[in-house]
């Protein structure tokens, strides 16, 4: 029916695709009223990124704070704690040589005599010698390995001491004496843990500070070095924080302070 009605048809044909131009600022009026779902998505993204960055900074901060103090490679410097291991390490190669030498050349009694004679001027009993010189650890070692007949140089010394003290008699030969004296300094230096450790630690510390100063490199030089490594196909080295010479930077705040302070000064003085 509606198709047949000429008025309907006429109006529909005319108005179906009619256009009326809206005012130019309508879109700009409309925009703020539209839901901005894109920015809400962006908001999510920003939130996640911020939380990741926050977590990262916290971790970095904690890492900085709780890191083991550098400079000694984690080695404990208290000598009482390392008396035993370094002595064993260093004496083992020495031990065989010296003991063999001693067995071949020196009669134990002569050594005992020697020690007695050396100690005598300081008016100390010979028994004290055995327990002196902070060698208790060594002593124990020696006692433990006594039965095996594979004795440390020191234990040899110790035992002979004891034997001779008991027997209270000694016969000395000048030749032997001289050989003993010649071998003795080496022997003592290697054994004495305190001197040895102190010297070694000092050396190590000195070397380390030296190294640190030497290794401290500017970032630019470091980068160049890495490029060289890269070119030559070597592995890249990650720089330690303490090995980087950070650029020195300072901000002079005084002009800024001065810029603002005169106003305050004037007002205060005028008043």
């Amino acid at each position: 029916m509606k198709e047949q009605n000429p008025i309907d048809q006429y109006f529909r044909e005319q108005l179906q695709d009619a256009e009326v131009k809206p005012s130019a600022d309508l879109w700009s009026k409309m925009e703020p009223r539209m839901e901005d779902r894109q920015t809400s998505r962006r908001g999510w993204f920003i939130g996640i990124a911020a939380s990741i960055a926050f977590a990262f900074t916290i971790t970095a901060w904690m890492y900085d704070n709780y890191q083991i103090q550098p400079g000694n490679d984690g080695i404990v410097t208290d000598p009482t704690e390392i008396v035993v291991p370094p002595v064993i390490d260093n004496d083992e190669p020495v031990k065989e040589d010296t003991t063999q030498e001693l067995e071949n050349t020196i009669d134990p009694s002569t050594i005992a005599n020697e020690t007695e004679r050396q100690v005598a001027p300081s008016s100390r009993g010979p028994r004290v010698v055995g327990h002196d010189a902070g060698q208790s650890a060594r002593q124990q070692n020696a006692l433990n390995s006594d039965g095996e007949n594979r004795t440390y140089a020191m234990s040899e010394n110790q035992n002979t001491d004891g034997d001779n003290l008991n027997s209270q008699s000694a016969s000395t030969e000048n030749q032997n004496n001289s050989t003993v004296e010649s071998t003795r300094p080496d022997f003592e230096v290697k054994i004495d843990p305190y001197e040895y450790l102190a010297a070694r630690n000092a050396e190590r510390a000195a070397a380390q500070t030296q190294e640190e100063e030497n290794e401290r490199v500017g970032l630019d030089q470091y980068a160049l070095g890495q490029i060289d490594n890269l070119v030559s196909g070597k592995e890249l080295e990650a720089p330690k924080k303490e090995n980087i010479r950070w650029p020195e930077m300072s901000i002079n705040l005084s002009p800024i302070i001065q810029k603002f302070s005169p106003l305050l000064d004037n007002t205060t003085t005028q008043q």
């Binding site: 108005l15 009619a18 256009e19 009326v20 131009k21 809206p22 309508l26 879109w27 409309m30 539209m34």
Partner: peptide
């Protein structure tokens, strides 16, 4: 795209 859709159809729908 929303703006373009608006530009394309606003005249027609205002009518």
């Amino acid at each position: 795209a929303q703006h373009e859709l608006y530009n394309r159809f606003s005249g027609k729908f205002l009518a």
